[in-house]
Design a protein around this nucleic acid. Structure first.
Lengths: 253, 253
DNA sequence: CGCCAGTTTGAACGCTTTCAACGGCAGTGG
DNA sequence: CCACTGCCGTTGAAAGCGTTCAAACTGGCG
């Protein structure tokens, strides 16, 4: 038995060591001595199919989930009138479940938008590990803090911008999250529906569709279903009125 | 000299000990042994007049500010077009500056809405203290996490609700933050302008004014400038479609 | 082949915004 | 003391952006 568990640990350890995401997830900046206990804290990875839920609003909080591949949408729904609100799209390197830390239960639902693999991080273990690794603790706190800043920027986008501006900003944000290497010509493969984009941006699917069409006709985008090509990055940025005036010195998503 | 510093420490210590807010701020739940170093970490308190800024967007991050009395608005402004977005109103017990932890600089501005006193919490000291007091660390993390949940709820409010519903929800939220003791008949003294409420809710001042007028005519509110009396809490709650379905087991603002 | 969900497009509607005017109130200065 | 100014809040009317409703189209899939 011991050998088996040993083997399991070794596999997990190497899975973190050789994970191409390790420089973009919570493990970022951990040295080798720190990476091992971090890997040990991760029970295992798991896969979800499109439409499968990772957790539901109201479930008791146990784990954080680091998205390894695929994408996830975090959303809020109300019992009264069934209103839904997408709060965030999480991409590889991002974490789902952070809102639940301050509460015993998940305060949102998370569902896979496509085939998605996650690292399951039991919070009790992670929390214990943090108290031993101040560096990890601080990094995690920064990550959570950044979420607040992101939410604030989103609020400005929604309250102060037109549909056209919101969509432009959304696409640019999507770009910067997906493409690590900035290239002049950007290709996007949207993992979410028009409805989801609309809901996230406080619009309707029809409006989003119309704005896509318009940006296409203007030669700024080439829109083909979920495949979007940005033909004129400069004009798109102009429309988005990019507000990223204070670049993050430490950017953890 | 030693006596003087000793005295200073005692004063600070007692200021936390006898602070009527201590059960509603970060110091909540700290035992006496923990409270002393916490008090020591607080340099001093400071007062701001209405309109005075506590920090500006872009300032280098040094301190967190616990609001002791008064109220503060946290807002984002853009360089491009001067657009402004109020992200939060902070009341006694609340903390300003949390968005800055993940960045070297403040990512929002904070300004006093009325005469306001704060406890200045140098982050470097606070951070060091946290690594010694896991309980404080965890509590702080929960607080930051709750901010994300709050932002998510606000997003739903703004994206899915009408002006009338938003204002109703705003008033109820204001009540629950200000009045610890829930009474059937609620009186509010708003510390912010119509413009501020409108901006926070993604509306215009005119719309907010009209909704106030309507709620007044309907007998739900009595509106007199900044003094609002809630005459019919039941109907107001109905309008707000209160979504507080999952009560916070640990509520830290 | 037919069904269905997602997307696009059109047309009409409507909530909120925009523009404008007015009144109240505090601060200022003659 | 009063006129002047600016800020805030209210109210009215008109305009507009996005929504709502409706229909057609597309592609995937049993």
């Amino acid at each position: 038995m011991k050998n088996i568990t040993e083997t399991r640990h070794i596999i997990q350890k190497s899975s973190c060591l050789y994970c191409c995401l390790k420089s973009r997830c919570l493990a970022e900046g951990l040295d080798l001595n720190e990476l091992k206990p971090f890997c040990d804290a991760i029970i295992h990875t798991r896969s979800y199919q499109r439409g499968q839920h990772i957790f539901y609003l109201g479930d008791s909080f146990r784990n954080l989930y680091i998205i390894k591949s695929g994408s996830v949408k975090i959303y809020l729904s109300t019992e009264n009138d069934g209103a839904e609100q997408i709060n965030e799209f999480v991409f590889p390197g991002g974490i789902a479940g952070l809102e639940a830390i301050g509460n015993g239960r998940y305060l949102s639902s998370a569902v896979a938008l496509e085939t998605t693999t996650v690292c399951i991080l039991p919070y009790s273990r992670f929390s214990a590990l943090c108290s031993k690794l101040p560096h990890l603790q601080e990094q995690f706190l920064q990550l959570v803090s950044n979420k607040i800043a992101s939410a604030n920027r989103l609020l400005l986008l929604i309250n102060q911008r037109t549909a056209r501006e919101r969509l432009a900003a959304f696409l640019l944000d999507y770009c910067s999250r997906m493409n690590i290497f900035s290239t002049p010509y950007q290709e996007i493969n949207l993992s979410m529906s028009r409805y989801d984009i609309a809901n996230y941006l406080g619009l309707t699917a029809e409006t989003v569709s119309r704005q896509f069409t318009r940006l296409d006709k203007e030669g700024i985008l080439k829109v083909d279903k979920h495949y979007i090509s940005i033909l004129d990055m400069k004009r798109l940025s102009l429309i988005a009125k990019s507000t990223d005036s204070y670049p993050n010195t430490v950017t953890i998503h």
